[in-house]
Amino acid sequence: MVAVDDAREGGASRPVRLEEAVGVLTAARQVVLLAHVNPDADALGSALALGLALHRRGTEVQVSFGAPERPAESLRDLDVDGLVVTADEVVAAPELLVVLDTGSVDRLGPLADRAATAGSTLVIDHHVSNSGFGTHYYVDPRAEATAVMVLHLLDAMEAPVDLPTARCLYAGLVTDTRNFRAASPDTHAMAARLLVAGVDAEAVTRPLLDTHPFSWLAMLSAVLATARLEAGEARGLGLVHALVEREHVDLGRQEEVESVIDVLRTTAEAEVAVVLKQVGERRWTANMRSKGGIDVAAAASALGGGGHRVASGFTLDGDAPAILDRVRRALADAPLLG
C-alpha cells in the first residue's frame, strides 16, 4: 500500500502509510465515518466494515453520508449494529473524521463542513483523482476498491473479519470490480477469504446487481429512448450518452438510476458511455465509463469531478446540450490509456 505524494504547497494535508493510518484510527475515542453522497456499496460497505471494527474496540462510532436521508435499499442490511445515522444526527465537531471512497471534500455534500470542524480528518480512498484533503490521507490508486484498503487496515489492527464485516467488504469488492471482471489475483484471493468467513455470494450480489422492481423497465425504456451514439467523438473511439430526467430521478430508487450506465456501456460501437442525471432544475450529475481506451478520470477532472481512469463522474449546472458539449471537449483532450 502506498500514499500519494503531498504536492500541495503549504497545505496541512499529508500522506500517511498503513501503520500510521492504523495509529490515527486506534487512538481516537470518537470517530465519524463518512461516505460520499449517494453512497455505493464500496463507500458505505467500507465505512461500515471499519466502523464495526472500531465499535467493537469500544470507540464511539457514527457512520453517515450527506444525501439521501437513508441508504439505498440494497445496502440497508449491511448495517447490523445500527451505526448509520442521518446527516442531521452527525456530531458537529468529531474528534476524528474518517472519509472513505471520496475523491474531494465537496463530494460530502452538506457534511463537507465536518472536514473543517473535526479535530483531525483521515481520508481513505483509491481514486487516482483524490485531492488529498483532510489532515491525513491514505490513498492507493492501485487498489480496485476502498474495501481492499479497509481489509488491509483491519488486518493491521488485528480486528476479526467476521461474517457481518466480510459481507460489507464483499459488497464493496463485487460492485467496484464489476463482479470481479476487473479484479487482480490478490483481490480474488481476498474475495475467497471473505467467502470462507461465511459470505453467501449470491445473497450479497443479487440485490446489488440483479434485482429491480418492475417499474424499472418503464424508466429504462424512457431513458434509453434518449440515447445517442456519436461514433466520431471520444477521440474517434465513440461516445454513447443518455439523459435521466428529473421525474425518473425523483421517482426511482437510487439503484435503478445508477444502473442505467451499466446498460449503456454495453454499446459495442462506443468506447465511452455517459449518463446525465437531472438532480435540480439546471443541475446534472454524470456517470462516465470507459472500456479502457480513454482516461475518463482526466475528463471528469476537467469538468470539476473525478474518479477512476475507467469510471468517473462530475456535477455541473446548465442545460444538458451545453454540458454534453463540454463532455465532448473534455474527452477530446483526455489521455489515451495503454
Rank of each mutant, 00 (worst) to 15 (best):
M1Y: 12
L237V: 04
G11E: 14
D333F: 05
S215T: 14
D210A: 13
S13F: 10
V91W: 11
L251N: 15
A7N: 15
A145Y: 08
S74R: 13
A192C: 11
D200Y: 07
A242V: 06
V274K: 01
V161N: 03
A115C: 12
G82N: 11
F180P: 03
D186V: 14
V244P: 08
T211L: 13
S129D: 07
V80M: 05
G58T: 06
F65Q: 02
V84C: 11
L169S: 07
D319P: 07
A227I: 08
A41E: 00
A189N: 12
V90M: 06
T59E: 03
H188D: 00
R328W: 05
D101T: 05
G109R: 04
D186N: 12
L34Q: 00
R265K: 10
D6H: 12
A67M: 14
R107A: 00
R265G: 06
G119Q: 10
V4H: 09
E269V: 09
H136T: 10
G172A: 06
D262E: 15
A35D: 04
A222N: 11
E20M: 03
A225Y: 05
A332D: 13
S259V: 10
S120I: 06
V249F: 13
L54M: 07
A197L: 02
A332W: 08
F214M: 14
T86I: 05
R289Y: 07
R107W: 00
G10Q: 03
R8F: 13
S301G: 13
D106T: 06
S131L: 09
S74H: 15
I261G: 00
M190R: 13
L251I: 13
V275P: 07
R56C: 00
G305C: 03
E60A: 12
E69T: 14
F180S: 02
A3P: 14
L194V: 02
A53C: 09
E245R: 13
K277C: 08
I124F: 12
A47I: 11
R76I: 07
S184W: 11
I261V: 12
G280F: 05
V244K: 01
A118E: 06
S184G: 10
A227H: 07
A47D: 13
A28F: 02
A302E: 06
S13Q: 13
Q278A: 08
V37D: 00
T285F: 09
G198D: 02
G307S: 03
D250V: 09
E69C: 09
V148L: 03
G109N: 01
I261P: 01
L153Y: 07
G58W: 09
I261L: 08
T226L: 06
R107H: 04
E247I: 09
